[in-house]
């Protein structure tokens, strides 16, 4: 079975965000780049299925500038078989543009399962997975916290408010991954060495016209400096009074 995992390179979640001179994007200076955390879960799930249930190929695909190849190597080091880099010079293409480029690559690629993270750890849009599915006419289940494959079908659990929805889906299908689905492995030294010899195919990304325009990227207004109301048990009565009279929240 062929599985494709769409992966995004993002700034490390520890990054202190600085705004670039254009006022619209992240200043890339000094940023460490990683595989987006939810996408690691997606890669892990595809590898588990390949190794335990449905032998075949796991292909990772990323849309981005030259730098994304290091992230594709990370996914290869985890165990993916090969990678496709859809190249673009556009900084921060919008989700629909990314989805178009991915859909074009996936059309006719024969993937039975197409994996995405629930959302990317930088733009937090949670759009690309269901958009690709829509463009390809595939069924899609988002925010999978449980996944069981059974022949040409899968049963997926997704967390919703106050419970879990159980969805049955026919393959080929697109799935976006939620935390808790699995524990992504760390790349082993052997994996890292092997990844160096695995192929990364380069192709131009066809993004099409933008559907969103970033007007500004700003830092959030600082919260008012915190106030310590006191120490230990004595502080409790002060706290309760402030919550009632000043903040009016209880």
């Amino acid at each position: 079975m062929i599985q494709v995992v769409c992966v995004k390179q993002v700034a490390d979640t520890e990054t202190r965000v600085r705004v670039a001179a254009d006022g619209r994007n992240l200043d890339p200076a000094g940023v460490t780049w990683i595989l987006s955390p939810y996408d690691e879960i997606a890669v892990e799930q595809a590898l588990l299925i390949r190794d335990k249930q449905a032998p075949g190929e796991v292909v990772v695909v990323s849309v981005g500038g030259p730098g994304v190849q290091s992230t594709l190597r990370n996914a290869l080091a985890m165990g993916a078989d090969r990678a496709i880099h859809l190249k673009t010079e556009t900084i921060g293409p919008d989700p629909l543009q990314v989805a178009r480029a991915l859909a074009e690559e996936l059309r006719g690629a024969g993937a039975e399962l197409v994996w995405f993270g629930k959302q990317a750890a930088d733009d937090d849009q949670a759009q690309v997975g269901p958009m690709v599915a829509e463009l390809l006419g595939l069924p899609c289940v988002t925010m999978a916290a449980g996944f069981a494959l059974d022949g040409g079908k899968a049963t997926v659990e997704r967390e919703i408010e106050g419970g879990r929805e159980v969805v049955e889906v026919t393959l080929p299908a697109a799935i976006t991954t939620e935390k808790g689905l699995n524990d992504p492995r760390y790349a082993s030294l052997k994996g890292i060495m092997a990844a160096k010899r695995k192929p990364i195919e380069e192709k131009p990304a066809r993004l099409g016209e933008p559907a969103l325009e970033v007007v500004a990227l700003e830092l959030p207004p600082p919260r008012g400096a915190g106030k310590v109301v006191g120490q230990g048990v004595e502080a409790v009565s002060v706290l309760v009074r402030l919550l009632r009279e000043e903040a009016k929240v209880i």
Binding site: V17, D122, E209, A211, E213, V214
Partner: peptide, 18 residues
């Protein structure tokens, strides 16, 4: 224009719709 947190709330993005 839409205002939305990005980078898990570490920054705020303003978007317009062409």
């Amino acid at each position: 224009t839409a205002t939305r947190p990005v980078f898990a709330g570490k920054a705020i993005q303003k978007l317009a719709f062409p």
